[in-house]
Design a protein around this nucleic acid. Sequence first.
DNA 1: TTTGCTGCAAATAGTTTGCAGAGAC
DNA 2: GTCTCTGCAAACTATTTGCAGCAAA
Lengths: 149, 149
Amino acid sequence: LADNQQRYETIVKTLQQHQHKLTPQRLAIVRILAASVGHPTADAVYSQLKKDFPTMSLATVYRNIQLIKSLGEVLELGFADGSNRYDGNKPYPHPHLVCTLCAKITDPDLESLEKMKAELASETGYEVLTHRLDFFGICPDCQAETRGD
Amino acid sequence: LADNQQRYETIVKTLQQHQHKLTPQRLAIVRILAASVGHPTADAVYSQLKKDFPTMSLATVYRNIQLIKSLGEVLELGFADGSNRYDGNKPYPHPHLVCTLCAKITDPDLESLEKMKAELASETGYEVLTHRLDFFGICPDCQAETRGD
DNA sequence: TTTGCTGCAAATAGTTTGCAGAGAC
DNA sequence: GTCTCTGCAAACTATTTGCAGCAAA
């Protein structure tokens, strides 16, 4: 999608503005994060890159993800089972819908969330800064496989 | 609170119903989980118990938490920073409000969540099984400390 | 008495870090 | 040429597991 290309350019520009060097490895990592197809894990990013960079180190992936996260250009999704996934396409907090069978992650629209956040703030006196909302369930495809096949 | 006592008894009953033995260590762990004051980490549970059980092993804490979780009597809260906290007082999914300064966790009431879940299911075709909702912010106490002191 | 539980220590998995050489600017 | 980045290997942290002895029922 053209959206991915735009995200790629935005992240690269941010890196440059903060005087970070644009190495081939770094740019390749940014390209994958900008797309964030399937909300990849660090290891998934690493696996994709080993084809083009056989000597690529997993440590480099982690270091760059941390760097880009510190610039606010990637969202880290840590799950209860300890797995981390990354979204560089929508780097701001947003709800996720996770299929517990095929592990697919999609981004539903839930405009009522902001309302809920405001309501919560006025009720509790908290200054609400951010949030995390995940729904877990079975996607239509996996429901079909379970029934029919 | 009397509520804690009730939770303790419920968890113990569940353990018995599933033919698990009631060792002193296990019961002590259940007692702490039933209260879940501050939503403790496994290590916090361990620290509390070392006073009464000097030879207590951290592995025993983990094993028992896993056991009780498998019986559906404790909620595991894995956070993005890798920390796990446990709630045996309300072992079902519910929203949390986390203070990012003092790490206090409270349980706000948000009845609109169930509505949101139903809306999401009908919109996406997912069979929504569970969810996870956390808000992060600064509690009134910490706001006061930042301002005045 | 039987069966499962505990403590210890070692293994595991994901992530981070120190260092020396390589490369972007 | 300078200063950061990379690759490698080792360190680290939280959690899990194997095993032998111990204890609940």
